[in-house]
Simulated scan of single mutants.
Amino acid sequence: MLTNIWGKVKGLWQEEDGLGMLEMILIIAALVVIAVVFRDQLKIIVDNLLKKVSSKSSTFIDEK
């Protein structure tokens, strides 16, 4: 009996099925929902990052 259970456990461990279409759709849907919910915060973060990149690149170009 223990051998039978161990064989099933090993079978589950070695199973290497890829992600199905349903899982991919659920992951994409979750990412879209998160992006919609935190849209304003994400916009602020991206704007701040772009301002920093712009200022750093300006100082780098002006030094040469």
Rank of each mutant, 00 (worst) to 15 (best):
L2Q: 11
L2F: 13
V9H: 02
V9N: 02
V9C: 08
V9T: 09
K10E: 07
G11S: 15
L12P: 03
W13R: 08
W13K: 03
W13N: 04
E16F: 03
E16C: 13
E16L: 14
D17G: 12
G18T: 00
L19I: 09
M21P: 09
M21R: 04
L22M: 13
L22T: 03
E23W: 01
E23A: 04
M24G: 06
I25A: 10
I25V: 15
L26E: 05
L26R: 04
I27F: 05
I28W: 02
A29P: 05
A30T: 10
A30M: 05
A30I: 07
A30V: 07
A30C: 07
L31Q: 11
L31H: 06
L31W: 01
L31Y: 02
V32S: 02
V33Q: 00
A35H: 04
V36I: 15
F38G: 04
Q41C: 01
K43F: 12
I44V: 11
I44H: 08
I45L: 03
I45M: 14
N48F: 13
N48E: 05
L49V: 08
V53D: 06
V53M: 10
S57D: 00
F60G: 00
I61Y: 00
I61T: 13
D62K: 12
D62A: 15
D62E: 14
D62R: 03
